[in-house]
């Protein structure tokens, strides 16, 4: 998919009408994530109870890909255990780096798998990864 179609079909909806872009009341964890070179700057909030992500949200600003990717990530983190969340991050990271291309494996990523073509846009890789990288760091810090 070329970039314009990626925007039109997937990214715009999450960028313009994000479901999870808000401060999270009762969040147990929060962490700022920044891409200094582009000015993507988010705060990720997680509400974790008994090792399970009960809710996820983010605030901040950035390019459409960073914002949409973060919104999709929040969507799928809800209900996962911390270990599952980290293994999703590994999968998403592998996909964006172009290392994981097996479609069956990527199905697990749900809608986030639609960002696969970012793997062919080297300048935008770090945008797609920002939310995921922040989540990984947050759970890592916590451990």
């Amino acid at each position: 998919m070329d970039l314009k179609n990626l925007y039109r079909e997937i990214v715009n909806e999450h960028n313009l009408n994000p479901a999870h872009k808000h401060a999270l009341e009762g969040a147990t964890h929060e962490l700022r994530g920044v891409n200094p070179s582009c000015g993507d700057d988010i705060v990720l909030y997680l509400k974790i109870e008994d090792g399970v992500v009960k809710d996820a949200a983010f605030t901040g600003e950035g390019c459409a890909i960073s914002q949409a990717s973060c919104d999709m990530m929040c969507d799928q983190l809800i209900g996962l255990t911390e270990a599952e969340a980290l293994s999703r991050e590994e999968l998403f990271h592998g996909m964006i780096r172009g290392e994981v291309t097996d479609e069956a494996a990527l199905e697990e990523l749900d809608e986030a798998a639609s960002l696969q073509d970012v793997a062919h846009m080297p300048a935008r890789v770090k945008c797609a990864l920002l939310g995921w990288r922040t989540m990984k760091e947050l759970l890592g810090q916590k451990a």
């Binding site: 070329d2 970039l3 314009k4 925007y7 070179s37 582009c38 000015g39 600003e61 950035g62 390019c63 459409a64 890909i65 846009m121 300048a123 935008r124 945008c127």
Partner: peptide, 22 residues
Amino acid sequence: GVHPHDISSVLNEDRVCIRAGH
């Protein structure tokens, strides 16, 4: 409503090279 990096990336699809960032 449009981040400068998105502006530059979209223009790149149209073979127009401009800078975006700080």
